[in-house]
């Protein structure tokens, strides 16, 4: 009975969503007055950044990204405080299956390559697809691989906190430097260079590298907390 009601409700909901998005009027108006052309033009002429998505995330909507990073920080903090238990439980791993030699050797072999790929992705965030969030996630997967392959692989929570806080503070510092030198918070105050150059886009690569460090530290801490959770 309950399932029938749910299916009826979902059918009505789906019908109205479908007629909204599949109507010819929606299709005709979809790209008419978009801010797309403005962003595409300004990205090349003012910011000299190849990747428009990065330019929007870090520069046009930089304040939004600061909020996003804060949300991620809050999620990591909330996770730590929800799962907090007596200190002596920390150090014992919930997942206790020993990894085989093949997995261990392979993880050791591939770990530097993963870190290098992550660093490449966030350093080239303004030139190629990718950026701080993606690169940070790749680095965190490298640490996840090491944590599930080696039982006694440990990461210092203090070092992670220092990296994370430092990256966050530097993000805000760059925002205020924009306020001082450029006139508004997170303004791009550095020289923008040449399009498709590694040192181009002014403050964009700097901020995205900071975001990369912050996300990598946060996600690694998150994985570490969950893996050391004892039920």
């Amino acid at each position: 009975m309950k399932k029938a009601i749910v299916i009826f409700f979902l059918a009505v909901f789906g019908y109205f969503m479908a007629i909204t998005f599949l109507s010819p009027e929606f299709e005709a108006d979809r790209n008419r007055n978009g801010v797309k052309d403005f962003y595409l033009e300004k990205t090349v002429s003012d910011l000299k950044t190849a990747n428009t998505v990065t330019a929007i995330v870090v520069n046009f909507r930089g304040f939004d990204t600061l909020g996003e990073v804060t949300v991620l920080f809050l999620a990591a903090t909330a996770l730590g405080s929800i799962l907090f238990k007596k200190r002596h439980h920390i150090g014992e791993r919930t997942v206790l299956y020993p990894a085989s030699t093949i997995v261990g050797s392979g993880a050791k072999l591939i770990f530097p390559a993963i870190i290098l790929l992550g660093a490449y992705v966030f350093i080239h965030g303004h030139l190629t697809p990718g950026g701080g969030f993606q690169g940070g996630t790749i680095i965190a997967t490298g640490f996840l691989l090491m944590l599930i392959s080696y039982r006694n692989f440990s990461i210092s929570h203090n070092i992670l906190s220092v990296i994370e806080s430092l990256a966050g503070i530097l993000f805000v510092v760059f925002g205020f430097m924009g306020l001082i030198y450029g006139g508004s918070f997170l303004e791009n105050f550095m020289g923008t260079g040449i399009l498709n150059d590694l040192f181009s886009g002014g403050v964009i690569p700097v901020i995205y590298i900071l975001v990369g460090f912050k996300v990598a530290a946060e996600l690694t801490g998150l994985i570490y907390t969950i893996l050391h959770e004892k039920g």
Binding site: K36, V53, I56, V57, A75, A78, L79, I82, L83, F133
Partner: peptide, 28 residues
Amino acid sequence: DPVPQALVLTAIVIGFGVTAVALSLIIR
């Protein structure tokens, strides 16, 4: 259009945070 892509990048990160916190509440 690059604008929805930038918004989806934000949404993915927020969705990840929501999932992580929800899973930790479930563990508790």
